[in-house]
């Protein structure tokens, strides 16, 4: 199993009382699986995703990535793991305004010293997500859908084993949403585990597995 979440809990203090944003969630995701988690705003979806990406520490429970317990990794190891094996697409506008489209996509490769040149792969990914003509453009010149495609291409540049996307279709029109979800299906078809959270129930038809989340609890199926 690539990703295993066991009895995961994340508590915050709200007005002095503990409040569970994620409450006893257990789920496993294997290579090539496309998992979609739906739920209303504030149901705990993004918290779950951030814990799975190693950005947030759980209050209790465990997260194992390819057999490695994330809680045992220090910041350097966890960051390297996220860079090399997890493609993360944060919610909202998540490309860097200072860099061109090509540089945004190549950025994860260059965050660590590596052999090789990511430019060819970045260009292939731009073809794949349908933005080959935007290589030299800057984010301010792009539409919302194009920005999202840049973020998707960027998340794939290091050939990750797990792709995590937080509300990837949140502000997109129906056609672009369709295109983005088709892309994720294609990525999953290439053997990458895809974990998407969204409040848009329409995207569920693309998924092999569907979970719904409510008040921090995860239920398989439509809930």
């Amino acid at each position: 199993m690539l990703l295993e979440l066991r009895d995961l809990k994340k508590e915050y203090l709200r007005q002095g009382s503990p409040f569970a944003a994620v409450d006893g969630v257990s789920v496993s995701v294997d290579k090539g699986e496309f998992v979609c988690v739906t739920g209303r705003s504030g149901s705990g979806k993004s918290t779950l995703l951030n814990m799975a990406a190693g950005l947030l520490k759980p209050t209790s429970g465990s997260i194992a990535f390819d057999g490695r317990e994330l809680s045992k990794l220090d910041d350097d190891e966890l960051s390297f793991l996220r860079n090399t094996r997890i493609g993360y697409i944060p919610q909202g506008h998540s490309v860097l305004a200072n860099f061109s489209v090509l540089d945004n996509i190549r950025l994860p490769f260059y965050l660590y010293k590596r052999e090789g040149n990511p430019t060819d792969r970045a260009r292939r990914l731009m073809e794949q997500v349908g933005i080959p003509h935007l290589e030299k453009s800057y984010p301010a010149q792009l539409s919302g859908g194009e920005v999202r495609r840049v973020a998707i291409a960027r998340s794939l540049v290091n050939a990750p084993q797990l792709l995590i996307a937080d509300e990837p279709t949140g502000d997109l029109d129906r056609q672009t949403t369709e295109d983005v979800m088709n892309l994720f299906t294609q990525v999953a078809g290439d053997g990458v585990a895809v974990l998407v959270v969204t409040h848009d129930a329409d995207v569920v038809r693309h998924n092999s597995r569907h979970f719904s989340m409510d008040s921090g609890k995860l239920t398989e199926g439509g809930g």
Binding site: D75, D76, R82, Y88, S94, V95, L107, P108, L111, Y112
Partner: peptide
């Protein structure tokens, strides 16, 4: 937010 994106892409705190 910009630094958050670096973090999400795998930048260490040190970086």
């Amino acid at each position: 937010r910009e630094f958050g994106i670096y973090r999400a892409l795998g930048s260490t705190r040190k970086k």
